[in-house]
Write a protein that binds this DNA or RNA. Structure first.
Lengths: 236, 236
DNA sequence: CGACTACTTGAGAACGCTCAATCCTCGTGG
DNA sequence: CCACGAGGATTGAGCGTTCTCAAGTAGTCG
């Protein structure tokens, strides 16, 4: 109650699961929700916690982290605005969800949200479809993690981020160099790719030395030769 | 209809998605289905194909394989009886699905199956839940593939297979040694774990030398010291 | 009995990791 | 305005795990 803004000014109104609801349904759902701001580095749920929340990510980025008993970590998923966060069914969470940037969530308590889901087949269907896409992506990443070289991993990652950057990216000519900011630190990239910070850094340097990319700032990337980068993403 | 047996004698009647349907609904679905036997090594769908089928696996095991352009392969999923196979939505498949053993499928053409799914919220919900479980499992495997040592991977895999073997396993006393057959060759285990055949073989030998397991036959495994095996699955 | 396939074992090389030092950037405070 | 500190990034040297290549063994089926 306290704070919920109305869905009408929701930044992800059409892309999120709610996009499948009409205005009346939305009003009902809105009654359940509360918005929450999280700071970078802040954890939303811990591995082992009961599933208690479902949410839509309104802005910012989250990471899903799996870790071993002795502290090794792997980022198993990245969440972007409009992505669904959490699990609608009871159980214990296997992963820790942490904000990578400042982020804003539209949070629903799990049980009432699940009931809404059950009453709206369209929304459930959309969630099924998205879950299947996430599964496909996770499986593709298994191939990357298990079988690709550090060079291929980094090159492929940069291409992925370039595709994501889309609008915010800056490109002189359609085929020309493409510049954008990486939303992750080297350490986080390493956690995504199953490498170490040093290896990520060395591969970046190597790509720079080969004239495939430029590093105008510590966080910025320019792809100067996309074809060469694609070639390196495919072959060791 | 050519061959379809009736669902009443279906081996996976209650565990498969169809378990959520009543007898009348089942009859309707049965009209769509055809049973198909596949030989070990036979491929059901290739990466890049359009999604054309949905199916329930009745018996046997299938593998989902992702591969790179130059032929490196990774098994990204194993399918067991009662598992759902395929994708209900249009699109191109990212993975190749191949039989590991002789297997029997109950196949539905995608489009009519999707319509049945849409008309039966229970079934759709069950599929959503299973897809989420598969996603969780895939993400857990990402941690294994990216961060665990060969020793941890093999030990963890043997424990997984022991859990799967369940009924068919042979155990003298509840806490005593447990013997079962691995359903995979060393090469397939390597494909699952992101290792090479040789490394899998060496780790098996090492576990045997340590007295943690015994290898009574080339395919058989005895876990002689479960705690020691669990310890090796957790720490390098 | 011979061919085939799966599995094991060995030697050497390579890729990525560990440990450690240095550098860069940026924000803060003297 | 500049010195300082902190966190991130880079670079280097050396090592270790796993891979590659290559024999050799075992079990199976004709």
């Amino acid at each position: 109650m306290a704070t919920s803004d109305i869905c009408a000014d929701c930044a992800v109104r059409d892309q999120a699961l709610c996009g499948s609801l009409d205005n009346d349904e939305l009003t009902a759902l809105n009654m359940l929700s509360r918005r929450q701001l999280v700071a970078p580095g802040e954890t939303i749920t811990w591995a082992g916690d009961d599933h208690v929340i479902c949410a839509n990510l309104l802005s910012g980025m989250l990471k899903l982290v799996a870790s071993t008993a002795d502290g090794r970590e792997q980022i198993v998923g990245l969440l972007y605005p409009a992505d669904f966060v959490g699990q609608p069914y009871p159980g214990r969470s296997s992963f820790t969800i942490t904000a990578l940037t400042e982020a804003e969530l539209c949070i629903f308590p799990r049980e009432p949200f699940t009931r809404v889901l059950e009453d709206h087949a369209h929304m459930e269907r959309l969630l099924l479809r998205r879950t299947m896409e996430a599964l496909d992506e996770a499986r593709s990443r298994m191939l990357t993690l298990a079988r690709k070289s550090a060079q291929e991993k980094v090159a492929g990652f940069l291409l992925d981020m370039a595709a994501r950057a889309g609008a915010s990216a800056c490109r002189a000519t359609p085929a020309g160099p493409l510049t954008f900011d990486l939303p992750l630190t080297r350490g986080q990239i390493a956690d995504v790719l199953g490498l170490t910070i040093e290896t990520v850094s060395r591969q970046m340097t190597r790509l720079k030395a080969a004239g495939v990319i430029a590093l105008p700032g510590t966080r910025a990337i320019t792809i100067t030769n996309r074809e060469a980068l694609e070639a390196r993403a495919e072959a060791a």
